[in-house]
Design a binder for these strands. Structure first.
Lengths: 141, 141
DNA sequence: ATAAGTTCCGTACCCTGGTACGGAATCAAG
DNA sequence: CTTGATTCCGTACCAGGGTACGGAACTTAT
């Protein structure tokens, strides 16, 4: 017999390959496992674990969600909705995140306008002293 | 004599009051002092330090800037704009900060656009079977 | 004047999101 | 079957941004 006790489809890869495919490093995968975001397949008694393509998807999902500003805890919540059946709940999470991001955008835009003003006044030599940046950004205190 | 050796305007408050007014806790103020973001007023020989309203503004500013994604080191640089004497120096600093802010804005805008798209697809119920947010997060792997 | 509440100061510890290390076991190729 | 690369697993460490602790000194209210 050729195959002693298991046929391993090429799609089932070891952790290094998973990490590479997902664009993170091995330690990060393990870290996600410790955090409960990725699960450890049970390993073939004394052997090395193998991961299915869905694990790759999962890790990529995590990275993408992070880029959208979700923390790992939040990503965990999103992953629980991964079956795609709880669209409503998912949407609430997304809307909440969106609101936070929009607030930050507003603040940041204010800051940007202020800096631009400061810079142009500086160039014009109008203001030898300091700028009202703090006064403006800490307004309403 | 009533006032032994100093008149203390009510606006000059002790650290606990400062912390409360700024919405952070005392330890955080001290931490900022260690990091050089807030300075320690010299204390009346053996007594307790008192802080002026500008200290409150400063702390509030720090918190806001942080929410916008600036690290404490960056906030420190921003604060030097306010303290700044030399206009030329200030301008360079301001231009640098402006660049950082614009990057951050770009990031946040990207997140916002994506989230908005996803949310609206969700609402439109275009994909009845699977949630578009989840689908996008796992797509194309 | 005395008790209760703050402040001061140093040091130690916490969480988040990872990265690094190192020895033993296991796998894959020649 | 030997060699070199991976995996496993635990533990330690990193940066950033704080929080907690504890005793002594000081302030404030009664």
């Amino acid at each position: 017999m050729k195959s002693r006790n298991s046929v391993r489809p090429a799609t089932e890869v070891p952790i290094g390959t998973l990490a590479e495919a997902a664009g993170v490093n091995v330690e990060t995968i393990r870290y996600y496992q410790r955090r409960g975001l990725v699960d450890e397949p049970n390993k073939p008694l004394g052997g090395h674990r193998r991961y299915s393509p869905s694990a790759i998807k999962r890790v990529v999902f995590i990275k993408r969600a992070q880029q959208l500003g979700f923390t790992l805890e939040e990503v965990k919540a999103l992953l629980r909705l991964e079956d795609g059946q709880s669209c409503g709940e998912t949407r609430v999470l997304a809307e909440h995140k969106l609101a936070i991001i929009e607030e930050r955008l507003a603040d940041l835009n204010r800051m940007r306008r202020l800096l631009k003003t400061l810079i142009s006044e500086c160039s014009a030599g109008k203001r030898p002293r300091s700028c009202p940046i703090i006064a403006t950004l800490s307004a309403g205190v």
